[in-house]
Design a protein around this nucleic acid. Structure first.
Lengths: 140, 140
DNA sequence: GACGTAATGTTATACAATAACATTATTGCG
DNA sequence: CGCAATAATGTTATTGTATAACATTACGTC
């Protein structure tokens, strides 16, 4: 299969292991903490995890959070298979409970594009990360 | 002086050294490359640079670029002393020439705030970084 | 001048990511 | 099938980024 998005069963062993760990986690995980959870499955070196992560990010199944040096399984409202699979996504990261909400607002993506166009800047990728408190932790 | 924004001459020695290096650089710099440029001034350990950077970021004189693990001197269109000193800022990072453009779009920020409010999310900080090609590098 | 606070210096360590190289699947095709 | 091309894997070592812990020095304030 050559498609650049793959169903779960097309993942290689290491990719599936890494993705499994991320899917099972509420919070974002660093490459090294993923590795720690996969020692008993035979993974030994960071590179094995990083390589899997790179592919998973390519496939759109996993996102990298730049401000945390960590990774989360994709949780699009629409799901990764939906139309705007690789569109710009924003993250709201709770600094208390580590929950990450993922959202995409076409209007402000449009605004960013507008600015970029006006400046002659041609974006390859766009990173939007809000750090703060989620609803639950806000009231508490 | 207790104000949380300081004029240049209020910086401590290390802060002034680090800020000087950043001001003199076109491209963003990592803490370690700043350190390399300050060895002859007596700085020896990363921590000396990181501590200065932390203050400079607090003062609003320097920004951290999360997607690069690097730092730039603030270059607000309005300047750091202007009204919206600590407002949300976005960066357009050229991946070819390393130039960084800094901009603030109030409407855009308003949209983000709107989303956050609707979700009950309370943002402390907002990271917006565009990666791509600047005008000059785009045509070339 | 004594106290509290901020800045500094230094060593060691933790955490994140990649380089380089050897080996083993998998796939496609004559 | 057999072979070549490509992708994935395994392993060791290294580079890069950031902080912990602790001792010391400067500074403002009363």
């Amino acid at each position: 299969m050559k498609a650049d998005t793959r169903a779960n069963h097309d993942l290689t062993r290491n990719q599936a292991l890494v993705f499994g760990v991320l899917e099972g986690s509420e919070a974002p995980l660093s490459a090294y903490s993923i590795l720690d959870q996969l020692r008993e499955d035979g993974l030994r070196a960071p590179l094995q995890v990083y390589r899997a992560l790179e592919k998973l990010v390519d496939f759109g199944l996993v996102h990298r959070l730049e401000s945390l040096n960590a990774f989360v399984a994709c949780n699009h409202p629409s799901g990764p298979e939906a139309g705007e699979s690789h569109g710009t996504v924003a993250f709201a990261i709770c600094e208390k409970c580590d929950n990450v909400a993922e959202f995409a607002d076409p209007d402000f993506v449009e605004r960013l594009r507008g600015w970029a166009k006006a400046e002659g800047f041609e974006p390859h990728s766009t990173i939007i990360e809000l750090r703060g408190l989620c609803e639950g932790c806000c009231v508490a």
